[in-house]
Amino acid sequence: MSSVRKGRLFRASKARPLDALLLGGIVLVAVVSAFPLIWMVLSSFKTPAESMQVPPVWIPESVNFQAYGEVASVINAGRSFWNSAVIATTTTLGILITSLMAGYAFAKYRFRGRDLLFAAVIATMFLPPIVTLIPLYRLVGSIGLNASLAGVIVPNLANAFGVFLMRQFIAGVPDDLIDAARVDGASELRIVFTVVAPAVVPAIAALALFAFVYHWNTYLWPLTVLQGQVDSYPIVLSLSRLLSYNRGAMNTGLVMAGATMAVLPPLVMFLLLQRFFVDSIVSSGVKG
């Protein structure tokens, strides 16, 4: 017993410098990662003069909301946020639905050519988006969806990564649970959404987060499809208009205010889902 205790003490004393080193590393990474975000928020409160000052002013003398007001006069911020919300939310919902259904089929059904088909779906992940940009643009045009939000949304409603993620998680759902639902009289669709989905909540939360942030921030595809339809621009495209406006006015604060506003929804989404994500892991790990 005493030797065990000694061993533990020995290991603990060895671990302390290592822990400190690790902690130091984590703090460093956190500071480096957070710096642009903090700089962006601070700069959004600076006056135009403070923004251009050399050496740079780190903390503005007073909190100045002027840039935020100016954003609204340059772009239709409300409309842009609405467009972004429609694009990101609809696409995320679509990805969740199609990924759950395809992931369920790949994980739980036995059919001829299943593995080959799954490999083909995975293979699409290796195509750089730029390669598919023009063919996809022509395809969207051929069904009359160019210059519309639907054109931005529809091609992204299914996603190979989502299918892959869901298939991996759903494979871990016990077959008995699905059989029990079949005996209870549930249809396959009901099984997917009321039995399987609650069992893979962490995966759904993670996929929702990835999809929402990616499609909130996506730039090239909406720019290509919307063809200058400013009313349909999501906030990320509208930010580029702030940048071009800024070239005349030399006001970094304006762009930073717009960027701060644009970052808020994905940030809130992250905070909400992170809590949900952790809750799911805790409740599934308590017992059984």
Binding site: P174, D176, D179, A180, V183, A186
Partner: peptide, 15 residues
């Protein structure tokens, strides 16, 4: 569901 059976599984299979 059309057979009028009910089944109890080894793993309980509770939702």
């Amino acid at each position: 569901r059309e057979r009028g059976i009910a089944m109890v599984f080894q793993s309980y299979a509770l939702y």
